[in-house]
Amino acid sequence: MLNFSHTIECDLVHRRANSEVFVTSTDQVAEDNYRFGAQLPRWHPFFSDTDLGRQEYDPLLIIETARQGSLAVVHRYLGVPTGSQFVIRTLEFREVEQDLLAVRSVPADVVGRCRIMRRYARGDQLTGVVVENILCRDGRPAARVEISASWVDTDHWKVLRQRQRAERAQHGISKPAQAHRIAPAQVGRADPRNVVLSPARHTDEAVVVVDTGNPTLFDHHVDHVPGMLELEAARQHALLAFAKQDSMPEGRITAIDAQFRDIAELDLPLLSSICAEGRRTLASLTQAGRAVAEIELTWQFEAPGSANEFTTDLIDATIGHRR
C-alpha cells in the first residue's frame, strides 16, 4: 500500500540529500506493473524558480519524480544493484491535464503508475528497460513520462569512462573558466545560480554553464553532465531565443522529446544551438564535434485552460502507449 508520510531511501533514487527525494513509497500491482507514491513540494529552490513556478509544477520536476519512481521500481523489483551506473537514452514528457499540475495550499500527493514496456538483456542479465509513467493526482492522469534507460556495473562503467576520457583528451580537457551567465530574466529565472547558459559568438548558440555547485543539478558527485542540466539548457535557450525576438510570451511547456546520444564531459565546452519553428523549439547540444543530445520542446502560448490539443491523444496513451 502506498503512503506519503516519509520519503524512501536516497540510494534507491540516486540522490544524496533527503530534500531532493520526492518518492515516498512503491508497490507491485501485477507483472511489469507497479505504483509509486510521491509528494511534490509547494516550493523548491530550483524547480520553482521559473516564471510559472509558484503557480504550477515544473515539467522538469515531473520528469525528475518519474525518474526517481522508475529507479526505485528497477532497484526494488527487478533486482538491479543500487551501485549500478544508469544512462538515459530517450525521454518523453506529455502534459495531460494542466489543472492537476497547479500548486495548491498543500503539497501534491501523486501516484505514479509505472509500467515496464520493454526489457533489454545481454544473455540472462537485464541491462535496460523502457518505462512508462502516468502521474496521477486526485485519481486522474496529470502527465505522462516515458524513459528508456540502460545500466552497467561500476567496474564496466570505469572501463568505459577511462576509454572515453583517453579519446577526448586530444581536445584539451581542463577545468573550464568561470562562465559569464546570461541575465536571469532573459531565461525565465530569478536566481542567477539557476542560470545554465553563457553567451556564445554566434547568435543562435550558447555555452552550457556546468556549475557542479548547484545542489539540485549536482546533488551528488557524477563524472559527466547530467541529463537534467541538458534539459534545462534546452528550455533556457528557447526562452533566450524568444527574448531576442522582442517577445517574451508567457509560454509553458506541454511536451518534451529528448534523445541523449553521448556522455558529455564536465571539463569540455558544451554548446547548444537552437532552432524555433512555430510552437516547437529544438536544441542541439554538441561537444568537441560530437552530438550529445537533441531536445525538442513544445510550447503553449495561448490562454491557459484545463486541456490542450494533446489531451485526447494523451488520455489514450494512459491506457496503453506503444512506439
Rank of each mutant, 00 (worst) to 15 (best):
N133G: 05
I62V: 15
A185I: 08
D267N: 11
G213F: 09
A255D: 14
D223F: 01
T216K: 02
F93D: 13
W43N: 15
I182G: 01
R118E: 13
G112I: 01
Y34E: 13
P199T: 02
A102N: 13
E64L: 04
N194E: 11
A190F: 14
E167I: 07
F242H: 10
S84E: 11
F310W: 11
R201F: 10
S150Q: 05
L239V: 00
V196Q: 03
A283V: 11
S148Q: 06
S284I: 15
D99M: 15
R140P: 07
A169Q: 11
D316N: 14
E232I: 00
S25E: 13
S273T: 09
S198I: 02
V13C: 03
V187I: 07
S273I: 00
V129R: 02
D99W: 14
E146P: 02
V209M: 02
S5W: 08
I62L: 15
P107V: 06
P107Y: 08
F46R: 09
D109V: 07
N308V: 07
S25Q: 05
D211S: 06
F22K: 02
A108N: 04
L91S: 04
Q68H: 03
D11G: 01
E309M: 09
P215C: 10
S198Y: 08
E64K: 01
L197W: 01
C275P: 02
K244R: 15
R15M: 11
Q125H: 11
A283L: 05
L91C: 09
Q245A: 12
A183H: 03
Q300P: 00
A200V: 00
P184A: 06
P184W: 03
H75R: 03
I134D: 08
V187M: 03
N3R: 13
P269Y: 05
W299Q: 10
L61T: 07
I274C: 00
V110S: 04
A17V: 04
T281M: 05
E20C: 01
A102V: 14
L239K: 00
P199C: 04
P59I: 11
V209E: 10
V87Y: 12
Q39M: 13
R201D: 12
F218I: 14
V129F: 02
D267V: 03
S5I: 13
L229Y: 00
E302H: 13
H224N: 08
T216W: 11
